[in-house]
Every structure is written in C-alpha cells, then in structure tokens.
Design a protein around this nucleic acid. Structure first.
Length: 301
DNA sequence: AACCAGGCGCATG
DNA sequence: CATGCGCATGGT
C-alpha cells in the first residue's frame, strides 16, 4: 500500500485493541463496521466524501489504511481525530483502574478487561436514534431494526464484496417514510421520536457542537430530554457515547441493574440508595464504571 | 408459553 | 414527586 494512504496513531498506556474489537463484536450484528481477525473496517464521511478505513495494530501504533477516499493532510487529520475519539485514546484511564482495584467486587476487571476503552459514537444524532430503537426491546432485535433502517436510508460503499454503511443523514431520516419505518418494526412512538430527533438535527435546533457548548452536565442533559423520546436513560447514554461525558449513569438501564446484581452491589432493582453509594466511589469515572459493568454481561469463551 | 427486553410519556394521587 | 399503565414485538 502507498504510504500516503497510511496513518500511524501511537497507542497509549492501558489500551488493548483486541479488547476493544471484542467488545465491538460481542455476539451482536452491528452493520456500521466489519470486524475481521485482527482488524476493523468502517466507512466514514468527510466533506461529502466517503472514506473506507481499515484499522489494525502495528507495534506500538494503530495503523489506519485508507482503502477508499482521497488522502490529504485534512482527511488524515479528520480520520486521526475520528479514531482517537472512537477508541477514547486521549484519556488517561489509570485513575479509573486505581478505583477499580480499590473495589473488591470489581478489581478483577482491571486484569480481565485490561485496556478496554469506552467506545464512542461520534454522530450524536446516530447515538440518540440508536437509543430510541433500543428502548425496551432486546438487543438482538434492536440490531435487526437498526440494520433495516441503515440499509434503507444510509450511504454505502462496496469494497471487495462487502458493503460498508454510514448512518443516515438527519435530513434523510427527517423525511423518512412512516410506512417504511412501520415495516421495519418501529413502533408508532419510536417513529415519532426518531423523525422528531432527526428533524431537530436537520433544522439546526440541535447539534453536537451546541450541546458541547453548554456550561454543565445538567444543562446538556436538559437540552436532550426536552426532546420527545429522550428520557433520562437516553440522555445519559448519548452523552456517554457521543460526548464522552465521564459522569453518565443510565439509571434504570436493565443491563446495568443486572450487572450490579451480578456483582452483589444490589440485591434487587429498587435499591437506588445502594446504587448511588456505589457510584459515589467512582466519582468522575461513572461512565467508565457503567461501561465495564456492561462489558461484564457478556462472557468470553 | 409466559416473561423479559440497553424506556418513555402521560395520567393520576 | 412517585406510581402505574400502554406501547409493541422478537427472543428465550
């Protein structure tokens, strides 16, 4: 490959590409990336152009190959930033590991999940739509619905017999056909929420930059929950995945509650005081604690 | 075959 | 503010 098509990104301490890939894969069918033995491929868009990138480990670097798309200083900068954010490479997670090791129930995670990073969703609209799809249904089904939506409305690029998709533009979703969404097994409410969210992004009422610019966590959450279909759970999830806010707790998340119960942190779902006390000990790292608890739900064989 | 899913909005008390 | 209900349907 032409060296001009290659980007090398230094790997930070406490980073495991393999752990991250495994989490992205798990046992679900996510259509926004394709994972092979030792690399991951994904289509992303920059200035109206679709890029296909392949990421793999190369010594102490992540090697990014630009398989489709014009390599330029600008596009390389964009891709580097994109991957840095996606894999949360800029964060020093040592303080989180120090907290993990202090908690007898979770200390094992510092070894078993060593180097796992909070995987992000760069596009805020995508993160919210994904939440809406996933509300109150099982993940296997949620991924099916997501795939139907993306295959119908997303941009795509073909490469060596595979198709790589990009989450639909908010403008496209804002004008999505209600009957189509029903056929994809969106409930009527979720159609309203999804199109409403897409419209807010499309008409400029809402944007990631706008949310970022708000002064504090509470006001950022409030700006999201003002939208129909975005409750406490969705707002926390979206801020965690898209803005990488460190203090997100998707209260009432069924997976989180199950994980807390598995670790004997709570006995049943009503023990809010115990949940609060637990997260109090992870002050400033709540999102990471949640993410690692989610990780614990899928056992590696 | 009943019960559960990475919830939310709205109506009540 | 807290609780309860309908939504909607696949997965286990």
């Amino acid at each position: 490959m032409n060296t001009d098509q290659i980007i090398l990104i230094p790997i930070p301490a406490l980073f495991s590409f393999e752990e991250c890939l495994w989490f992205l894969n798990r046992n679900y069918d996510d259509c926004l990336h394709i994972i092979h033995q030792d690399n991951i491929m994904k289509a992303i868009e920059f200035e109206g152009q679709i890029f296909l990138i392949r990421i793999q480990e190369n010594g102490s670097f992540l090697e990014v190959d630009i398989l489709i798309g014009e390599s330029s200083p600008e596009s390389k900068r964009f891709i580097t930033d994109y991957i840095t954010e996606w894999f949360d490479l800029d964060r020093n997670i040592q303080p989180f590991y120090d907290l993990l090791k202090k908690d007898g129930r979770l200390a094992y995670m510092a070894e078993e999940y060593k180097g796992l990073r909070l995987l992000g969703i760069a596009d805020l609209c995508e993160a919210i739509c994904w939440c809406i799809i996933g509300q109150q249904i099982n993940l296997t089904f949620a991924y099916k619905v997501k795939r139907r939506l993306i295959e119908k409305y997303g941009k795509k690029v073909d490469y060596e017999g595979e198709t790589y998709y990009i989450f639909p533009e908010s403008e496209t979703l804002a004008n999505a056909d209600v009957e189509d969404l029903r056929a994809m097994q969106f409930s009527q409410q979720k159609i309203d929420y999804t199109i409403g969210t897409a419209k807010a992004f499309a008409n400029g009422t809402l944007s990631k930059e706008m949310i970022k610019a708000l002064p504090d966590f509470t006001s950022r959450k409030k700006a999201l929950t003002n939208l129909k279909g975005i409750g406490e759970w969705t707002a926390n999830y979206a801020l965690m995945k898209s803005l990488k806010e460190p203090q997100c707790i998707p209260h009432a998340d069924i997976g989180l509650l199950n994980a807390l119960a598995n670790h004997d942190i709570i006995a049943d779902r009503s023990e809010q005081n115990k949940i609060n006390a637990f997260f109090e000990t992870f002050k400033g790292w709540e999102s990471y604690a949640v993410f690692y608890l989610w990780r614990s739900l899928t056992v590696r064989v």
